[in-house]
Design a protein around this nucleic acid. Sequence first.
DNA 1: TGCTAAATAGTTAACGTACACTATTTCGCT
DNA 2: AGCGAAATAGTGTACGTTAACTATTTAGCA
Lengths: 355, 355
Amino acid sequence: MPPLKTGSNKSIGIKEIAERANVSIGPVDKVLHNRGGVSKATRERILQAIKDLGYTPNILASRLKSSRNYTIAVLIPEATDMIPFWFAHNAGFEEAVKEVSPFGINISILTFEQNNEASFKLRVDEVIHDGYDGIFMVPVFYNETIRLLQHYKNLNVPVIFFDSNIPGLSNLSFIGSNSKDSGYLAANLMDYTISKKADILIASIEREEDNHIQFSVREEGFLTYFKNAGRRILQFTDNTGNEQVISKGLSAIFRDNPHLEGIFVVNGIDKIAAAVTPTQKSNYRMIGYDLIDKNIQLLKNGAIDFLISQQPQKQAYQGIKLFYDYLILKKPIAPSYFLPLDIVMKTNIDYYRFL
Amino acid sequence: MPPLKTGSNKSIGIKEIAERANVSIGPVDKVLHNRGGVSKATRERILQAIKDLGYTPNILASRLKSSRNYTIAVLIPEATDMIPFWFAHNAGFEEAVKEVSPFGINISILTFEQNNEASFKLRVDEVIHDGYDGIFMVPVFYNETIRLLQHYKNLNVPVIFFDSNIPGLSNLSFIGSNSKDSGYLAANLMDYTISKKADILIASIEREEDNHIQFSVREEGFLTYFKNAGRRILQFTDNTGNEQVISKGLSAIFRDNPHLEGIFVVNGIDKIAAAVTPTQKSNYRMIGYDLIDKNIQLLKNGAIDFLISQQPQKQAYQGIKLFYDYLILKKPIAPSYFLPLDIVMKTNIDYYRFL
DNA sequence: TGCTAAATAGTTAACGTACACTATTTCGCT
DNA sequence: AGCGAAATAGTGTACGTTAACTATTTAGCA
């Protein structure tokens, strides 16, 4: 059998289609870019020639000549010691920029405080004022997001959400993972690792600076799985952030619930896991979120059993490449891209530490 | 804080470095490509100018002009109904080719029969005879692989292994996953999902056409985890491929081993799972490999609990992009790239069905 | 009909690089 | 010193596209 070859050899350029349409390359280029100034008849002929010859633009030559630059504004919460989650995206942005910058796509990273609408508004003002060719953002605050969208809708500038979604808006696309499914998955995994009738604790940490909606959707997914399963599900919510307090609270729960075997931690698993002694831990399975350094440490030493990762680097990487697809390659963009929910444990964590 | 901008604006080309080195672009180009014909002194000056100005070649212009083409031979076992695993790579190859073909990288897929060294030899002959600019291959047969490597070593043509590795050879790199770790991971997962002292069965199907080495390494990793764990580990190997026979064999094992709770299937989990009745299945956890269609079906209907994926599409995609990195961007290539071992279950499978 | 403006079509100069080709310099040798 | 070959340096064209600019045609109107 003959080997399968890819790629075409004879390149068909605007010169060829000009020839076939009996015009010079001028009008061809005008047609290709909808720049007007071409009579209807020749336009038709050119269009036909393009179809006949199967013309595909040479993006190399195109980029070389035009050298139009696109700057994408990346609106992302600021990573802090409290919320190190947002650190992870950087690697993805870097990698993506390396690939697409020869094509004129660059990014401006604009951070804001996750719990501070004013700081978000400031950035939105900036983005509107400075004028970007694309927006890649976490739509944390509804009203300001709307404002940004409305401004850029008229300008036909692509806005893509990531990490969390607000459905029904005029953004071009969303890339991230499905929070509800992630809760459902966690429940499924939990179900496998504890005994049939054991109780489960849902633990969370209430902090002003967090994205509550996403967390409650995780919980919703988790609860959906166990609906009518006849398990007793307990709740523990801390709002101090103090390890001593958490430790005390959990100890009381452990004492009062002898059938408890699993702990699903909606957020801040580093705090929760640190508040559980190794002796206590040996009786429970703990599942939580996010491959931040602290959590990886806790996973490795057995304080955490499973982490579910939303692959932030990949979100960043793929997201930027979506702008490349849209702006340079003119490819159609799907309304949403869901990345896999990775199950990470002690024995496969090392493979997830890089992009 | 000012926004972080990426990418440089003022482009420095060979013209600029020529100017700074007080020569015309001719010698600059010669130096850049080591084509000789430049005196030592001017060579030094040019090199210095390149360093001073931080020149990076414009790959767009470079590609546009030279239009040198690279064809990569992909040596991969033929996918069949018996071994559908190799189907999965196609999507990855396609995706990668789409991205790199503007840069002149194309592939020729050459398939061989996995259990037939003669067919492999034929392909090696072909690859040697036709002359390729890169080889991406599954090194199934040792001697022929050596022959191919020796031929291309002198020509400085990059050879990259994928899926399985033969360490210590002169290939440029390997991309795939670590089979031993995958067995170890499976064991870890199994340990979580069955009770403390339960027995485990390791099941496999012996077929001529399979890659035995990889399978035994999986088993080795699995056994390593349970070394000294005090669990009883049973073995079941079928060499008929007949569902009836497998079913009988398993039933006997189930009958004789009341403490059996987990089944680790090294290969051919579709056959094994199909031979277990739903009633029987309710007593066991089953973990196996490969996201082939049949297995996905079985995972969805509960006949399989966990699948470990080696991400064949991703291997294919990343592998081809390695050639792009090496041949076009002249980036250094690491000796090995290990892809994550994904844990897939009913509740996250849908996110793994695409690349 | 003749003139002008508007509409349409054609020409051309880059973009940064590769490389073949030509021009100049260097240097050995008689 | 003068010649020619070898070594080195410089020039120019093309890759396919963009877009500004120029040329031509069409059409409106007095």
